[in-house]
């Protein structure tokens, strides 16, 4: 019963809350920029509106274009179920390996990039090209940042790993902090945030993610937007629960889980705030400066692993 409940949370929490996370970030950003900003719940309304609309699909597009939104959404949900959200006690030996999560998301990126090319427009292709550049280079930093944790926790199972990090002595936390910096850069890159991409732009020259989905409309656009929101919350959850695993439930007791859920929301809010703060204070980078940043993230993780000794 409890297990079922936790599994339900695992599967539904991310899609349910992800529009909120995006909305909150936008709201915080607006506040930081002395704007009123839309309600944090605005993304829900957007999705609902899109789902109600008719759809236009390019004649040049193939089934790849049609399938991608579904696949993308599925993958983000499946990946969300594979990471510890509220309890470390819920072992997931089937898909809970961090490489699985990383590569599930990569599969989504792969199809999204194909969909960008599929319509034969000039923008989509360039968006795909840039997306693959960022994704390919971000993967190294991401894997190494998580490997740092895996080496400390002596497992690559994310659930066990969260528990393992939580029980580390404070003196051993230096590598975790370094790895987190590396992870955070990867987070920004993977979720299309400043300084990599501008989630709000529709200027052709600066688009990455938006360029790829230019041809989507209606329900498929809704799914894509939702998926990217999922991905954002997913990374936020990874950062919150793996690098700062305190507050996660150690068992499946209801009270603990409720507490853990609250703590998780708090941590996620802090991370969203960090992203919003960052987006308000720095400018977007030129595309060829991005690799430097990504390699820096990679090297930070290497240093972190070196510190483990």
């Amino acid at each position: 019963m409890k297990t079922t409940l936790v599994w339900t949370i695992q599967f539904l929490l991310i899609p349910a809350l992800s529009p909120l996370a995006v909305g909150v970030t936008r709201k915080l950003k607006a506040l930081l920029q002395n704007r009123q900003g839309a309600s944090p719940f605005q993304p829900y309304r957007d999705l609902a509106k899109l789902l109600r609309k008719d759809e236009v699909i390019s004649r040049d597009a193939s089934w790849v274009f049609r399938v991608t939104p579904y696949l993308l959404f599925t993958l983000t949900v499946a990946a969300g179920a594979s990471i510890p959200l509220v309890s470390t006690a819920l072992g997931n030996p089937a898909t809970g390996d961090f490489l699985v999560v990383v590569y599930l998301l990569a599969l989504g990126t792969f199809f999204l990039a194909l969909a960008g090319i599929d319509t034969g427009g000039a923008f989509g292709g360039f968006g795909s090209s840039r997306e693959m550049l960022v994704a390919a280079l971000a993967e190294g930093g991401l894997i190494l940042a998580l490997l740092t944790l895996a080496l400390l926790g002596r497992t690559t199972d994310l659930f066990a790993l969260a528990g393992g990090i939580a029980s580390l002595p404070v003196t051993d936390l230096a590598p975790v902090i370094l790895a987190f910096v590396g992870f955070f850069v990867a987070l920004l890159a993977e979720t299309g945030r400043y300084p990599f991409d501008n989630p709000a732009t529709h200027l052709e020259l600066t688009m990455i993610h938006e360029a790829m989905i230019l041809e989507y409309s209606g329900k498929r656009l809704a799914l894509i937007e939702w998926s990217s929101a999922n991905k954002y919350l997913l990374f936020t959850a990874l950062g919150a629960n793996l690098f700062f695993p305190w507050g996660l439930a150690g068992s499946l007791a209801l009270g603990e889980i409720a507490l853990a859920l609250t703590v998780f929301l708090g941590k996620a809010l802090v991370l969203c705030a960090a992203v919003a703060l960052l987006e308000s204070t720095i400018a977007k980078f030129r595309i060829f400066r991005l690799p430097d940043l990504l390699f820096t993230s990679f090297i930070l993780s290497i240093i972190a692993i070196g510190l483990i000794g």
């Binding site: 792969f110 990039a113 795909s128």
Partner: peptide, 18 residues
Amino acid sequence: GGLAAACFVKAFGVTFLA
């Protein structure tokens, strides 16, 4: 892994799509 994915987005996309 990442670069191979990029390469095959190119190979598959440019060959079969659009």
